[in-house]
């Protein structure tokens, strides 16, 4: 539901980097988005096309790399994707704890035209 302000922020960051590089326009933006970021990627291109009008990002393609959340077993160290309604390790039955995997939310890179 908060894709609008987030998309504005993405455009702002991309435009800044494009300007710093003296580029004329942004062709694509690569986002890394963990599933825990709560960001619904499907709607972003739609918002993006509207909000980017008149900026260096107009017409750019947004590419999203999704990251599945993983937790880590406190007993055996296994990194795993948890089952719904459980934090238990599938390997040893130990208890999993949160990690940062799946919380990513950043712009990795942009492609620009000189």
């Amino acid at each position: 539901m908060h894709e609008y302000p987030i998309t504005e922020q993405i455009i702002k960051i991309a435009v800044k980097h494009a300007e710093d590089a003296g580029a004329s326009r942004v062709k694509s933006i690569k986002l890394v988005v963990g599933d825990y970021s709560g960001f619904v990627g499907d709607s972003i291109q739609m918002y993006f096309d509207i909000i980017s009008e008149g900026t260096k990002c107009e017409g750019a393609v947004v590419k999203i790399q999704h990251v599945k959340p993983k937790i880590k077993c406190t007993s055996c160290g296994e990194l795993f994707e948890r089952e719904l309604l459980s934090f238990d390790c599938p390997k040893c039955g130990g208890q999993g704890e949160p990690t940062d995997i799946g919380k990513e939310f950043y712009i990795e890179s942009i492609e620009v035209e000189e």
């Binding site: 922020q9 980097h17 590089a21 062709k27 939310f105 712009i107 492609e111 620009v112 035209e113 000189e114």
Partner: peptide, 18 residues
């Protein structure tokens, strides 16, 4: 044809909020 260049950004989208 324009030259296309890749720029590494690595910037967290929540940075400004934070």
């Amino acid at each position: 044809m324009h030259d296309v260049k890749k720029i590494n950004v690595m910037e967290n989208i929540h940075d400004e909020n934070d």
